[in-house]
Design a protein around this nucleic acid. Structure first.
Length: 293
DNA sequence: ACCCTCACCTGCACGC
DNA sequence: TGCGTGCAGGTGAGGG
């Protein structure tokens, strides 16, 4: 479902809703959601944990937890807190968080339910079941497989013109494919990869290594602009954790898109019909005139 | 080390 | 109405 801007909005919405709350109990209805972790362990670790904060690394949502006191198994042993934990969640295509009242009906595809101390429930639903969640010791996050390999955050200093130039120089893939690789450029997905290339006026099928410095600079700026604009443009009202849909691309997003899902429609810049092609199994949209080379 | 294809799922829109 | 096909915002395994 989401690319980095949408994940950012989900993070902000979660922060407003659940930071400071304690998890009373949890329920996992789709076993594979939590991977190889034992169900019992997962539930035990979450029980009585307090949600300290919510952040993000790439498209991973990081829910920071302070474990509750676990009564010592031996009476002599003092109750103690375990190490800080992070629940890392990836929404993949259709994952959504909902924040439900006690009497709200549980929608279809609700795979995880976290019962909170205010009588409400934080629900994870996911139609296509691609989403994953994993409990990690807080200090081990950056070494966790899947997160360790991620490219630098786009809004950090490390994602510089020089960084992008070196990445492109070493790749014989097409730009569109490369922009989707989260270990090379972080945050774009199928929509914003097309949008960034349109903004930069660069053909999606161009080989990465062929790009001149001038155009690398333009692409770098376009990536930052498209991500920033998508975050700014997204009125937070469109991420509504209290709606069963939670979040969807509505009219506002469609206005934002300049090429995505606009096959056959006139380019806003030159009027030429936007084209679409399937490339690596995914749709790419571009303006054949503005993005000729 | 890189890069490609396929697999993972449900549901919707489309043409016959 | 039903049924087959293709497609959907993302990755990861496995192979060349």
């Amino acid at each position: 479902m989401p690319e980095l801007p949408e994940v950012e909005h989900v993070v902000r919405a979660l922060r407003r809703a659940v930071v400071g709350r304690t998890i009373v109990a949890s329920e996992i209805r789709l076993r594979k959601l939590i991977g190889p972790t034992s169900l019992a362990t997962f539930k035990r670790k979450l029980k009585s944990a307090t949600i300290n904060g919510v952040s993000r690394r790439g498209k991973f949502i990081l829910i920071e937890l302070a474990p509750g006191r676990t009564a010592g198994i031996l009476p002599a042993k003092r109750a103690q807190r375990g190490p800080s934990l992070t629940l890392a969640v990836h929404l993949r295509m259709t994952g959504k968080f909902l924040y439900l009242n006690a009497d709200d009906e549980l929608p279809k595809h609700s795979h995880a339910i976290f019962y909170l101390d205010n009588d409400r429930r934080l629900v994870f639903r996911d139609q296509r079941q691609f989403g994953v969640m994993k409990l990690i010791r807080a200090e081990a996050i950056s070494q966790t497989k899947g997160i360790r390999e991620l490219a630098p955050e786009p809004f950090g200093d490390e994602f510089s013109f020089n960084y992008l130039k070196s990445i492109l120089k070493n790749s014989r893939r097409t730009l569109k494919t490369l922009l989707l690789d989260q270990t090379k450029v972080l945050g774009l997905g199928n929509i914003y990869a097309s949008e960034a290339l349109f903004r930069a006026g660069i053909n999606p099928f161009k080989t990465a290594t062929q790009l001149s410095s001038t155009r690398v600079a333009r692409l770098h700026q376009s990536i930052l602009d498209v991500l920033r604009d998508a975050i700014t443009d997204s009125s937070t009202s469109r991420i509504d954790l209290e709606q069963a849909d939670g979040f969807s691309y509505g009219e506002a997003f469609e206005r934002f898109w300049q090429v995505y899902e606009r096959e056959g429609e006139p380019c806003f810049n030159c009027g030429t019909k936007i084209r679409r092609a399937t490339h690596g199994g995914r749709s790419t949209y571009w303006c054949p005139r503005c993005q000729r080379t």
